[in-house]
Amino acid sequence: MTLPSLRHGLILGAFCLGFGLVLAVIAQVTTDDIAARALEDRQNSLSQVLAGVPFDNNPATDTVLMENADHKEITVYRSRLKGEVTGVAYEIYGSGYAGEIKLMIGVDAAGQVLGVRALAHHETPGLGDKIEEKKGDWILRFTGLSLANPLPERWKVKKDGGEFDQFAGATITPRGVVNAVRGGLEFFAAHKARLTEGS
């Protein structure tokens, strides 16, 4: 058969097969390293938001799967000292100026914030990105707060009659973060027994 289209098809197919194989090999070679890097990242952010409580386990592997108020499955990481839970950390989500803001919160066994860090966001560079720790210390302000301090009706940015400073030129971003942190504390309050049960 001298069908030219058959020949072209075979050429294209051969290239697809060849480069597909190359990709499969590379993917295989890098899998372990990529998984290790992801684990390191998680341990890094966990050690930041859980700083302040003592623990002797590896929180990155002591996990429990829970459902948050928006019916989204989240992984809760727990730090323990001699089997007792000293703190828990989990992802919280705020709605920012340009989409979702993903944060990690650490809460101690009494329901006090240990630390909050932004993991991923799309906020405006120079305005909303001050929620990143390396661009400003605003995010550190949450440490030590709880649902009793300030009172729930004061868990808002100043513009809405609450306690928290907004940034010059950006209100929506801090509002989203404040709401997310309050939601995170409410999640802890609602599931406290399950989150802090012994091993």
Partner: peptide, 9 residues
């Protein structure tokens, strides 16, 4: 894809 995977790893 190769650069992406190698950089990630």
């Amino acid at each position: 894809t190769l650069v992406d995977l190698a950089m990630n790893a």
